[in-house]
Write a protein that binds this DNA or RNA. Sequence first.
DNA 1: AATGTTTGTTAGTAAAGTTAACTAACAGTC
DNA 2: GACTGTTAGTTAACTTTACTAACAAACATT
Lengths: 383, 383
Amino acid sequence: MTSTSGTRRSMTRRTASLPSHGREHNLALVLQHLYAQGPMSRADLSRASGLTRVTISDLVTELMSRGHVIELGTSNASRPGKPSILVDINRKGLQIIGVDLADSAVMRAAVMDLDGNVLTRVELETNDEKGEAATAQVIDLTGQAIAAATERIIGIGVGTPGIVNNDGLILTAPNFGWTNVDLHREIHERFSLPTHVLNDADGAVMGEHTFGNGSAHMMLVKLGRGVGCGTLVNGVRVRGANAASGELGHVIVGTDQGPLCICGKHGCLESWVSIPSIRRALAQRPEGISPEEHRAKIMQQAAERLGIVLAPIVSVLDIQDLVIAGPARFVDDQLLAALQETITARTNASQRPNFTVQLSENPDDIVLRGAAVNVLFNELGVA
Amino acid sequence: MTSTSGTRRSMTRRTASLPSHGREHNLALVLQHLYAQGPMSRADLSRASGLTRVTISDLVTELMSRGHVIELGTSNASRPGKPSILVDINRKGLQIIGVDLADSAVMRAAVMDLDGNVLTRVELETNDEKGEAATAQVIDLTGQAIAAATERIIGIGVGTPGIVNNDGLILTAPNFGWTNVDLHREIHERFSLPTHVLNDADGAVMGEHTFGNGSAHMMLVKLGRGVGCGTLVNGVRVRGANAASGELGHVIVGTDQGPLCICGKHGCLESWVSIPSIRRALAQRPEGISPEEHRAKIMQQAAERLGIVLAPIVSVLDIQDLVIAGPARFVDDQLLAALQETITARTNASQRPNFTVQLSENPDDIVLRGAAVNVLFNELGVA
DNA sequence: AATGTTTGTTAGTAAAGTTAACTAACAGTC
DNA sequence: GACTGTTAGTTAACTTTACTAACAAACATT
């Protein structure tokens, strides 16, 4: 029973840890506390983080020299001891550029502060431009947003439809006719600013997680021209083996056929619940049924179909929060209720006592804010 | 447009990084390289890890003092320079106890080496014991396995049905009538050895990932009395918000009703594809159809139903490898083919060019080996 | 005014990595 | 057979990072 000479193919290959990595980790930790809890003293940070006051002082000094942290002056709390000096993330002195390419009719960009508030918007109506023309539009719009910034920019975040790999290379984005477009490089070379590109639904889930409602085990479904989703497992974005995670639109729902989809299959989710599909269904009202009744039926159907596809995912991943983002005209409390009902009925719901189905807090800006979160995360280690 | 005074509820709260954490990380890194690539010299380790020879020497010294690494003597490769001294993980001097509670008829335990080879087995036939009687049986069997070990034991790994939280507390395990049973504490206090308890399907996916086939984006579906699954996302186990991930058996399949399930719903996956359900369906052969034909039809149906539930998950997570574990009598290449066919037909398969559906390499020992991997991971940082 | 508390800094130490330089042991060449 | 070059592993000194201990500054309370 000799043991096999060990040539395992276990894939986990971490990299060596140098002292400086720990340092970066702790710098990010300080920023995280400040970001989440607001202004506090070095002594507060020490208590919150477990690091000593000496170390915190050193970290804060470095963060101030980087411009990421500022002193706000002494706190005026009346209590014994030397008054503390409040420090905070440099909320007013740092800005983020967000670019949202999710809408097929209009490209949107914005200057945002660190809290995800939109300070200035710029938009550009498109005429279905493809390829390099679309790329040029993105660059142009980004430049406009950069020009509108009033403070130092820590980075540019882009949320785009399509499949985006870890390096910001857009493998495919049918809307813009992009194949292997290195949008990261294009933007970075043009503006020499840290740039982070990700899928729009992935951005949305990060934005909702940080700025809206949603735990570390959440999923955000985005209803628009298509149907996409972003997923967090234990607070970490699911990317998938081919960076193609979130593909939901062309999954077939149910076992009873369904409408013909543009992809050639029958009964794809997109053919049931994408906004164009819903509009189409609403327009085809049979005789002898009131508009209200018809609408209720169509929306009920859409919610059920969405629930049928989501139920296995919610159950297997033990998702806590399901957030739906889409036009308020269609995505409303009624839809949520029918959706939750369907998922509950089709799974062992008692094992997920705190499961929620919610609307996105700010569906219009969710991609912009998500793109900002991605910048925050990559540049400051925050979020 | 003043920014909101930042009280974000972003959940990510890491802990401070001390220099010693980096040290442990690097110690684990050395073990990982040895484990994956087999015996090598300190200089080899230095090249592979990026750390200097000096540091590697220091790490190896510490690992030898812990008994985790041994020197194998000089290599006899004929080349210029001082001959190297090969070091390796102490494969022969360390053993792992694995316990598999997945089968409802027999509890199984084993002494294993670091490569997951079973050296000695012990088994215990059960008579549907519940509660503390079942716990006592587990303790008894574990004790027998420990007695059979011939080398130092680095830990005990247990794979059990039911919902197991991060601390080894079994929240519910209907098979044994367990509710909030702290199996980790019971075993640890009795034997004073590092103990790690996890769900059987979670163990199985870890075992398959390390010892069998499967990438960092994989899913293992275990067909037995019920239907469960374990999922790896980016090489990390999915646990879920309530530690309840992997619940697959009581998800409803399709939109055409289906058999009544013991849970009260109609058309649960378990009522289609659990082994008892398949047996039942096979037994109910209508007149005028040959046994072979009937069997083919039933198995085709089971594969399709499984595929219908898995398709959304595979698509949304962008799973690379789907592994099915179950009795060879039913889980065969034919089932796989029908399953892959169904998933491909119901999703946008072109986005997952390397998607595979496979049989488990060693379905009988997969839980034992998975439990061992869990011990390896937690005690040595390997796998 | 004396006492106690709290903050932030200074000084020195321990841990864990680095570079530079060394010894040991081999193959190949003149 | 001595010399040269190569490779492995170790020793020594330095750098980074966090720690503990001690201190001065600035406040409230007695």
